[in-house]
Nucleic acid binder design. Structure first.
Length: 917
RNA sequence: GCGGCCGUGGCGUAAUUGGUAGCCGCGCCAGACUUAGGAUCUGGUGCCGAGAGGCGUGGGGGUUCGAGUCCCUUCGGCCGCACCA
């Protein structure tokens, strides 16, 4: 019987669906295991062959864990809100809900063909009201919470109100946007609205006036991770800085916990490093400076030791101090400079790093020496980091150095022997000079000593600063979650939790209103029952993906996001597989979101993703034909140097193993109908290159086509066989035949001619050895996510069993179970062919027996002074003495010993004997 | 600039973690069956050499009886962060 993958795969996929084989529920008796894929954004282009890579890996692992007796939660859903659907809607007028629905259907169809073991009853879609109700709910809870630095966790805002009314800000340490200080009496004397305004400074979800990344082309603000090098990640449009009133999430309050949590998760070092970088913790000090007029202001520095090298101060152009400090004489110049910098986009600022700046006219006095220090304004100082003001130490900071050189400001070196005539000395090493009480200390000693002195004299305090900024949470867009917020007297209030979900309203167009309001401004009746207007912004893409892993646990619960009982069973994700592009977006936001839910008792684990694997990207492999210039003749790859040729992308489907299918090529495009070919060895060989997978390069490979031609099992195995999971690699269909051949070989172990032919004899020693070698290898490979090497192990085993003419039922049954995670369809078919009634998914993973793996004899490489000379075999249980005596007595040894007595004999068990002379 | 990862046959890769480098697959070569195919099966295939043998994991150096693996140095590639004070 032939291996008819098409029929087999269709039949078992139907069976699995009909019998709900992949449905899971909480089973207290079994240990749980939660395997999650990063859910996809359903784009209009459908899945290409690169997308399922991670899904296949997670599916293999899920099936493996299930065979090992775990109760495995393995769900899938869709990140359905987002910009592309809305951009498409603007262009075509099609409602994003409609296109999203279509795209989802296509994705589902494509995924179903690959034979995944998802429990589809648990599917979530972020645009589903039953789902986003809980996104809105979490937002409401964040609005009604503040972060208490003392307790190191979120607390109800009502508690803060209570504390304010009793003690004011005295003795409290809540995370805030601006430090505030008032007494209980002052608090109690304020109006309700004033109090609300103050509370906004402390809420975890707050409305703030902040500098935002504004993308005029997209008509919306973007979060920091949605912008790269001054361009939007989606679309690549320019982004400018703008001050706007926006919803924000106080992610920065969690910076330290986000950092510490990284030590407790099993993620790749590079990903953790990326997050550490993004969080950007730096230890230093805030120091108070005074202008000569007596106005005080703060700066942040990590190099307090360089305090005696300060020769000027610099303010960020956006700093509020600018207006305050600028003297009347400098007013015009400063205005001029401010105008210039405001016009420059982020991108221009990055591209053009020439030194610019203007003198404010004001001076600060040095805290130790009292010397006057000119205060400058320059856009190399960022408003968003530290205090938006710095002390400039040109001798030991390259940016300050460049500025000082440009404006002819003094440079005072502070480290013995350093040369600052050409460039600054930024390294934190050397011995301090010109620094009063710090003289003679090493830099490493001087930093804490300087801060100690600063604190002692009341000139400042130790401070840890983070680069991580609060997340901007408003988008001026239609296709997103509406905020459960209304406005009364200009102040925002949240809806009651019982009023959720607040459903996304219909609009006539997906564009801003004529008055420049977001698209929701077009919605009719967009107000509360009492007539208060509802928020017009929607939430950003990361809102819906920040806690979806929790909702999978309990997707149909209408009372809670996830019930406590269910959450305590599934806890958190044991294995998360997805791309590295979410390192500073989703993977930060969801950790933050989960920590918040942990603080309010919804999630019982502080870290959402215990282990994380980043699968590599699959690039495209393009093929080229070489057209001789000005003709319709094409020359084969290795003959092209003889002509003047233009390489032309050719559809990779018209090429097999780099050999062009000439007829298919002629039929591809009328232009090529009459094409002529110069062949080599009777073939036309195409050139190739690794490029991004894209339509224009005709190198997009659709998994459906592979499934149709080779079957899902071959696709699954081949994707794994391509190389290490975490590595990026090109898709190259050349080579898939080898994997397909392997499956046929397995099939032929069972079937001879038309009938199943297996025996019930006891397996032979060789058969057991081949099998147990496989079990051992595959078990450890799966545990280490080394799926490419396990595919190789299967091939070796199949070759061995074929050579041994193995027909043994017991051996073949265990082989099938091992194969089941990788190639579930053929495994299921063969499992049933062997007479099993139950599904192979519920078999148990076989254990290997070391007894069968023992070698009768091991070849030892015999070396003299490290030079390997000959090989001898010894029994597995040979003793050291026996080996040593046999080696020295061997005639071959006489030649190398040259009559001398060996100094020592080193024996590496089962490997090597080295005789040292 | 700072941080991380990686360089192995014609190609994708493997190496029991310091122990016979190149498993498995592609490609290629030869053969078989057949008869024109992008089918199947068998054998071979790191490089030089007729051979014995020699050389081989980007280059150079070191530690070690022994290095693809550890250390130093250099070259090349990929990724992340970046006026973050």
């Amino acid at each position: 019987m032939e291996y008819n993958f098409e029929e087999i795969e269709k039949r078992w996929q139907q069976y699995w669906a009909d019998h709900q084989i992949y449905k899971v529920s909480e089973e207290d008796a079994k240990p749980k295991y939660y395997v999650l894929d990063m859910f996809p954004y359903p784009s209009g282009a459908g899945l290409h062959v690169g997308h399922p890579l991670g899904y296949i890996a997670s599916d293999i692992f899920s099936r493996f864990k299930r065979l090992q007796g775990f109760n495995v939660l393995h769900p899938m859903g869709y990140d359905a809100y987002g910009l592309p659907a809305e951009q498409y809607a603007i262009q075509t007028g099609q409602h994003p809900a409609v296109t999203t629905e279509e795209n989802i259907a296509r994705y589902r169809e494509q995924m179903d063909k690959i034979g995944f073991s998802y429990d589809w009853d648990r599917e979530v879609r972020t645009c589903d009201p039953g789902y986003y109700q809980w996104t809105q709910w979490a937002f409401i809870r964040m609005f009604h919470s503040y972060y208490c630095n003392r307790a190191g966790r979120a607390r109800p805002i009502a508690e803060l109100e209570e504390l304010f009314s009793r003690q004011g800000t005295e003795g409290l340490d809540p995370a805030c946007s601006e430090p505030m200080s008032f007494t209980a009496a002052e608090w109690n004397g304020k109006t309700k609205t004033e109090q609300q305004q103050i509370l906004m400074n402390y809420r975890i979800a707050y409305l703030g006036d902040t500098m935002v990344n504004w993308c005029p082309k997209l008509g919306t603000v973007l979060a920091n991770d949605e912008v790269s090098e001054g361009l939007s990640i989606r679309g690549g449009y320019p982004v400018e800085q703008k001050k706007m009133r926006q919803w924000c999430l106080r992610v920065s309050a969690y910076a330290q916990r986000l950092l510490e949590g990284l030590d407790r998760v099993e993620w790749s070092e590079s990903l953790k490093e990326t997050q550490r970088n993004w969080i950007g913790r730096s230890e230093g000090a805030v120091m108070h400076f005074h202008t000569t007029e007596g106005v005080s202001f703060d700066i942040f520095t990590t190099r307090a030791d360089t305090i005696f090298g300060v020769t000027f101060m610099v303010l960020a152009p956006e700093s509020e101090l600018v207006a305050q400090f600028t003297t009347p004489e400098q007013h015009a110049a400063v205005q001029d400079y401010m105008e210039q910098t405001r016009k420059r986009t982020e991108r221009e600022r990055i591209a053009d790093r020439s030194v610019t700046g203007v003198f404010s006219g004001a001076y600060a006095s040095h805290p130790f020496t009292g010397e006057p220090l000119p205060i400058w304004i320059s856009d190399y100082v960022l408003a968003g980091y530290g205090t938006g003001a710095i002390m400039a130490v040109p001798a030991h900071d390259s940016r300050d150095y460049a500025f000082a050189r440009h404006f002819h400001l003094p440079i005072v070196p502070l480290i013995e022997g350093c040369d600052v005539s050409e460039e600054s000395f930024d390294a934190k090493e050397g011995v301090m000079i010109n620094s009063a009480f710090l003289n003679g200390m090493s830099v490493k000693e001087a930093i804490p000593a300087a801060i100690d002195e600063v604190e002692k004299q009341g000139l400042g305090y130790r401070k840890i600063n983070y680069r991580l900024r609060d997340a901007i949470f408003s988008r001026q867009r239609y296709w997103g979650e509406p905020f459960p917020v209304y406005y009364k007297d200009g102040m925002p209030y949240t809806l009651g939790e019982e009023e959720l979900p607040l459903e996304l309203p219909e609009v006539d167009k997906f564009l801003p209103t004529e008055t420049g309001e977001p698209p929701l401004g077009r919605a009719k009746n967009w107000h509360t029952r009492e007539g208060y207007p509802l928020e017009l912004n929607t939430m950003p893409g990361f809102a819906g993906s920040s806690a979806y892993y929790l909702r999978y646990m309990d997707p149909h619960n209408e009372e809670a996001m996830v019930s406590e009982k269910v959450n305590r069973y599934w806890r958190n994700v044991d294995l998360y597989i997805g791309g590295t592009e979410h390192a500073t977006g989703h993977l930060i936001y969801s950790r933050f979101w989960n920590k918040f839910l942990f603080d309010i008792g919804v999630s019982c684990e502080e870290e959402p993703f215990r282990k994380l694997i980043n699968q590599g990207m699959i690039q495209g492999r393009s093929n080229f034909v070489y057209r001789i210039k000005g003709t319709n003749r094409f020359v084969s790859l290795n003959l092209r140097d003889r002509y003047e040729v233009t390489p032309i992308h050719v559809d990779v489907h018209k090429v097999h193993n780099d050999i062009l299918d000439i007829d298919a090529f002629r039929n591809w495009n009328p232009e090529y109908k009459t094409a002529e070919f110069i062949l080599e060895d009777g073939k036309y060989i195409c050139g190739w290159a690794i490029e991004k997978m894209s339509k224009s390069m005709f190198n997009v490979v659709n998994p459906d086509d592979i499934v149709e031609q080779y079957g899902a099992d071959t696709l699954r195995l081949y994707e794994m066989f391509l190389g290490p999971l975490e590595q990026s690699k090109p898709w190259d269909t050349n080579g898939i035949d080898g994997v397909h051949r392997f499956l046929r070989k397995v099939w032929n172990l069972f079937y001879r001619e038309e009938t199943l032919s297996v025996t019930d004899e006891e397996p032979s020693k060789e058969e057991l050895k081949a099998l147990h070698k496989l079990i051992k290898k595959v078990t450890s490979d799966i545990e280490q996510f080394s799926f490419n090497t396990s595919v190789s192990a299967f091939m070796i085993c199949a070759n061995e069993l074929t050579t041994l003419k193995c027909r043994n039922r017991k051996v073949l049954a265990e082989l099938v179970v091992c194969l089941a995670p990788f190639a579930p369809h053929i495994a299921e078919e063969l499992w049933h062919a062997l007479g099993n009634e139950t599904t192979v998914c519920d078999a148990s993973w076989p254990a290997w027996n070391e007894e069968y793996l023992k070698e009768d004899a091991f070849p030892y490489a015999i070396s003299f002074n490290g030079k390997s000379r000959f090989v001898l075999e010894f029994a597995a249980d040979a003793t050291r003495e026996e080996i040593e005596q046999t080696v020295l007595a061997h005639p071959g040894s006489q030649k190398w010993l040259e009559g001398k007595t060996p100094k020592k004999v080193i024996i590496v068990p089962q490997k090597i004997v080295n005789v040292v002379i």
